Amino acid sequence: MRMMTVPGVGPIAALTFKAAVDDPRRFKRSRTVAAYFGLTPRRFQSGEHDNPGRISKAGDRDVRATLYAAANALLMRTMAGSQIKSWGVRLMRTKGRRRAVVAVARKLAVLLHRMWIDGTEFRQEHLGGKA
């Protein structure tokens, strides 16, 4: 129920995330949860080139799809304003809709893990990490 206080996160997203993570203490930092589900950019690096690619798509595909759907619902359907939504809308204007939704999904994974560890509820004015 605590995870469903986040806008866009419903019962399916909360249960899928909770079942996939299983034990939140196995991740040292909340940021690594997003990488575990493949929501971090893939890098193509050599001595001369550094090209950021698409997301790595490692980890559980169903959890990644559920987080993407929750982020899309947060940005497109949720009427309640929050800092995470306004951050995503600003990203959408500069980077495009798909990249913004993936970035918000990554932030949702970090936020849900941190809420689970701390036992806190979502606050509309709070945005975890950099804004």
Score class of each variant (00 low, 15 high):
Arg2Trp: 09
Met3Gln: 05
Met4Arg: 11
Thr5Gly: 11
Thr5Met: 12
Val6Lys: 12
Gly8Asn: 02
Val9Lys: 05
Gly10His: 03
Gly10Pro: 02
Gly10Ala: 03
Pro11Gly: 12
Ile12Phe: 11
Ile12Met: 09
Ile12Lys: 15
Ala14His: 09
Leu15Cys: 00
Leu15Arg: 01
Thr16His: 07
Thr16Ala: 13
Thr16Leu: 11
Phe17Pro: 01
Phe17His: 00
Phe17Val: 00
Phe17Met: 02
Lys18Phe: 06
Ala19Gly: 00
Ala20Glu: 13
Val21Ser: 00
Pro24His: 01
Pro24Gly: 01
Ser30Asp: 06
Arg31Asp: 09
Thr32Ser: 10
Val33Gln: 06
Val33Pro: 08
Val33His: 14
Tyr36Met: 06
Phe37Lys: 10
Phe37Ala: 09
Thr40Trp: 10
Thr40Leu: 13
Arg42Ser: 11
Arg43Pro: 04
Gln45Met: 01
Gln45Trp: 00
Gln45Asp: 00
Gly47Arg: 10
His49Pro: 02
Asn51His: 03
Arg54Val: 05
Arg54Lys: 13
Arg54Phe: 04
Arg54Ala: 08
Ile55Glu: 10
Ser56Glu: 09
Lys57Gln: 06
Lys57Leu: 11
Lys57Cys: 10
Gly59Lys: 00
Asp60Ala: 04
Asp60Gln: 10
Arg61Gln: 13
Arg61Lys: 15
Arg64Phe: 08
Arg64Glu: 09
Ala65Met: 15
Thr66Lys: 13
Thr66Gly: 03
Leu67Gln: 04
Leu67Ser: 01
Tyr68Ile: 13
Asn72Leu: 06
Ala73Val: 12
Leu74Cys: 07
Leu75Lys: 01
Met76Glu: 14
Thr78Cys: 15
Met79Leu: 11
Met79Lys: 11
Met79Gln: 10
Met79Cys: 09
Ala80Ile: 07
Ser82Gly: 12
Ile84Gly: 12
Lys85Met: 06
Ser86Trp: 03
Trp87Met: 01
Gly88Val: 02
Val89Ser: 05
Val89Phe: 04
Arg90Thr: 12
Leu91Gln: 06
Arg93His: 10
Arg93Val: 08
Arg93Met: 14
Arg93Gly: 15
Thr94Ala: 08
Lys95Gln: 11
Lys95Ser: 11
Gly96Cys: 04
Arg97Ala: 15
Arg97Tyr: 07
Arg97Trp: 09
Arg98Asn: 14
Arg99Gln: 15
Val102Met: 08
Ala103Val: 04
Val104Arg: 09
Ala105Trp: 08
Arg106Ala: 03
Lys107Asp: 07
Lys107Pro: 05
Ala109Val: 03
Leu111Trp: 12
Leu111Lys: 10
Leu112Ser: 08
His113Ile: 07
Arg114Tyr: 06
Arg114Phe: 04
Arg114Leu: 05
Trp116Glu: 02
Trp116Gly: 01
Trp116Asn: 01
Ile117Pro: 03
Ile117Val: 15
Asp118Met: 13
Asp118Lys: 15
Thr120Asp: 14
Thr120Ile: 13
Glu121Thr: 12
Phe122Tyr: 15
Arg123Ser: 13
Arg123His: 06
Gln124Glu: 15
His126Tyr: 13
Leu127Trp: 08
Gly129Leu: 15
Gly129Phe: 15
Gly129Lys: 08
Lys130Trp: 15
Ala131Gln: 12
